[in-house]
Amino acid sequence: MWHLYLPIAGSSINIIFIFTIGLGVGLLSGIFGVGGGFLMTPLLMMLGIPPTVAAASDSNQIVGASTSGTLAHYRMGNVDFKMGLLLLIGGFLGSTTGVQLIKTLRGLGNADFLITISYVLMLGFVGGYMFFESIQGLQKKRAATISVPKKESGYARLMKKLPYQTVFEKSGVEFSIFLPIFLGFFVGVLAAIMGVGGGFIMVPVMVYLLRMPMHVVVGTSLFQILFTCINVTIMQAATNHTVDFMLALLLLLGSTIGAQFGAKISKKLGGDQLKILLAILVLLVMVKMLFSLLLPPDIMLAYKGGH
C-alpha cells in the first residue's frame, strides 16, 4: 500500500521509509552545510537502488535541500554570496580539470587504490585536526584567559601580498580574489577525482584557509552545493539517464523540511560545537570507508557502470 515504483531505479520502495531518510539527511545538511551524499547514497544502495541511480537522484534531492537550507541561512545573514561565487568559479574549473586528470590516472592503472587510500587519509587528517582544534578552542574559552593579540602567521602575511585584495563583508575577511578561486579549484579537482560532492573538503577549507566564521561557512557552503548539484543533475539526466525523479521527489519532501530544522539547530550551536560535531561526522565517514576496505565483501562481483 505504501509502496511506490521507481521507473529509473527499476525498484519499488516504501514511501514512509524514504521520506524519513530524507528528513534525517536534510537535518544534517542544514546543520553542517554538507550535501549528505556520503550518507544518503549508501543508504539507498542498501535498499537495492543501483549505485549510479542512487548518486544521481541524490544530487537531484540535494538541489531541493540546499535551496531550502540556503534560504534559511540567508534569512539569518549567513550566506556570503561574493565568496560563494568565487569558490564556484574555481570549483567549476577544478572539477573540469579533475575529470580529465582522473582519465589519465586510470590509464596509469591502480588509480582506484590510490584515490581511496588518499581519501581515507585526508578525511582522517581533516576530521582529526578539526576535532582537536575545536576541543582546544572550547578549553581556552573555559579557562577565560586574557586574550593576547595573535602574532600574524606566515600564511596570513603571504595572503596579504597577493594582488586584487578585496573585503568580504559577510565573512569579515580581506584577501585577494584569487585565493577563493584557487581553493575552489583545488576542492573541485579533489571532488571530481574522488567522485564526491566536496562539502566535506570545502567546509574545512573555508574555516581554516579562508578564516570564515563557522555559521557563514555553513550557509555559503550550501549556496555553493546548490549550484554544483544543479549541474550534476542535468549532466547525469542528459548523458547517463540515471536521475530517478520519483525517488528524488520523495527524498526532497523530507530533506527540505529537515534542512529548515537543521538551520535552526545550527544557529543555536556555537562555532566550536559545530566544528566538533562535523569533525566526528567526518571521522565516522572515514571509519566506515576504512571498514569497507578491510572487511571482505559478501559478494566478490559488482555490476559495472549503469546497472
Binding site: I8, V63, G64, S68, A238, F245, I257
Partner: peptide
C-alpha cells in the same frame, strides 16, 4: 528520461528548487 534527457534534468532541478523555496 530516455527520450528527452536534458529537458527531464532541467525539469527535475526546477521542481526541486521550487520545493525547496516553498518549504522555506
Amino acid at each position: 528520461a530516455f527520450q528527452h534527457g536534458t529537458l527531464y534534468g532541467v525539469l527535475a532541478t526546477l521542481i526541486a528548487i521550487i520545493a525547496g523555496l516553498l518549504m522555506g
